[in-house]
Design a protein around this nucleic acid. Sequence first.
DNA 1: GCGGATCAC
DNA 2: TATGGTGATCCGC
Length: 665
Amino acid sequence: MATVGNKTESERARPPSPPPARSRTTSVQLELLPRARSESAPFESRSRTNSENPGRSGGEGELHHRLLGPSLQKSGQDGVDQVAVSDIIYQASAGSKYFEHQKQKEKELTKKVEAILKQAEKVSKQDLAAAKVLVDALVNKLESTRILDQTIVHIDCDAFYASVEELDFPELKEKPFAVGNGVLCTCNYEARKFGVRSAMAEFVARKICPQLIVLPLNFPKYIAKSNAIKAILSEYDPNICAMTLDEAYLNITEYCQRVGKDRELVVQEIRDRVYRETQLTVSAGIGPNSRVAKIASNMNKPNGQFVIANDRESVMEFMRTLEVRKVTGVGYVLERQLNAVGVIKCGDIYEKAPLLHELFSDINLSFLLDCYLGLGSTVIKPIEQYERKSISCETTFRDLSSPSEIKQKLWQVATDLEKDCKRLNIAGRKLGLKMKKHTYEALSRQRPVAKPINSAEDLYKYGVQMLEKEMPITIRLIGLRLTELVDLSVEGPMKTFLKGSRRSTQVLADTSGGSGGAEETDAAAEDIEEDLGFMIHSQGDSGPNYRSWSKAHTAANLPSAPTESSAGSSSRKRSSSSQPDFSSEAPTDPTSPLTPPPPVPDPTPTDDRIKDEGGPAAEQVACPVCGNLVSGEPSALNQHVDWCLSRGAILEAVQETYTKRLKTG
DNA sequence: GCGGATCAC
DNA sequence: TATGGTGATCCGC
């Protein structure tokens, strides 16, 4: 790679311009819908809230603004009556729990903004004078990190998922359509004319555009196209940083020097090639660092490019008139706070910096001054080189309050998370439980777990402990997250852990791969480690052997395995083990008549019985629900646990009617 | 260190 | 009728 490379001081400490945000496959990537806008004027009259909305007082304008979502600032949907659209969205949402929650958040934000203003009033002239000294010192320090000899490019595909679909269904081009399910991931420009945008709930989108066509997501297709584009980009910078399927940073400094070509021409060539070879259009931003390049890629969207010259004055002038909301890292909340103190454009930041110093954290102040100065990272390196800090799975469902049904969802995310961990060959020392109440209020709990874990049983076991402390509760989402990760593929210290936990949690991995059981007898330490490494690996889905690079991009997104739960009913015999029982929260009276559930067929138990009889016990593992020893083979274990949980639901139902009967009779 | 929040995509 | 999932970071206690 090129010569330079010293990172600017301002490089990170804030929202990542280039590298952070990881592209995980499973995630649904929203597209920032941009728009071809001649100037930054159109929405101007719209984005300043209340004063522009005469009919809306008392924060109604803000609430409309909030509900309208993130695309407002860059919508510029020419000819779209944004006010009318906003009203429809409002009407569609009004009264729902979601709406009430947004309203509440808006209220709290307003309070926060008022508090900031109040605090601002208290700042004295002396305070400001003293702060100015500090600010100027900081500005000088930041300025000294400025690098202007690199050419950074941000490439952004236009309406990516929608454009890919149009290749397969050309007739869709003239029709408004979107991609997603329930919530739209993106939509074509035809749909945007109606005010449809990414992240919009599908039912809301249909209100403003009844003829909207909605296609399901097809990740394999998007991944293939994305890879094709990335292959082209890599010819211009072998170290491209692909943030997501549709977005990447390049450093073309060296390429330009090597071929002696102007950077704008090079970028035009890149875009031409991408279009020729994939039929997809991309927009590009060119500048001396990733922050300005990113912003620039939105300036001439779609299918355009924008360059910011590599000199201080050009950069500063570009930032001067740029609204703060357009900077990556400034969202709805920070924009509101900044606007409140008179900071509308990045050019306003310096003048207000002494006041900002009194109102915001040092980190925020540095970030804002970076924005004012137009500083950013010049180091572009592959996303794979950034260390992952967490891994998580979560799922949303209809409101649930039944403990056993909630636990079933927990088991589901535990198994999903296990799959991801095994694929990446990682485990974590800290487990977090996330819940969203039926009111949309979010809760999270977290606890250290001594040994790094990544098996569904462990995830469930510790997760359910945290869950039970919150019961009774009615929730619409549950999720698990591992942090303090350890890389199981790294040799060394991990050896101890692997060997130590071999019999307990690693058993699952051992027996799963189908390649399993034999070689595990007694091997030399190295062999064991190698075996485990391999098995944990092949544990994942049967697909291609995703190693590092591709694995993070592809596999995870494929439709998750059809976790068809065995609807078996019963057969019981709970072992003595004091494992948490899903039906525990219901006042379980041991003498209660319902303790012995009805006997019936059940897929897995048969298996278990056999093993229980003292077959090679090596492959057994304790069920996280009932505590019984069951086959450690993943699908069998899964089935068993699903069965166990559904059995819990039955018990619970019985219990409910029983208590009811007691009351009534 | 934990829990709540914000932000990006 | 109805509003997503993953990862990172920051802030206030």
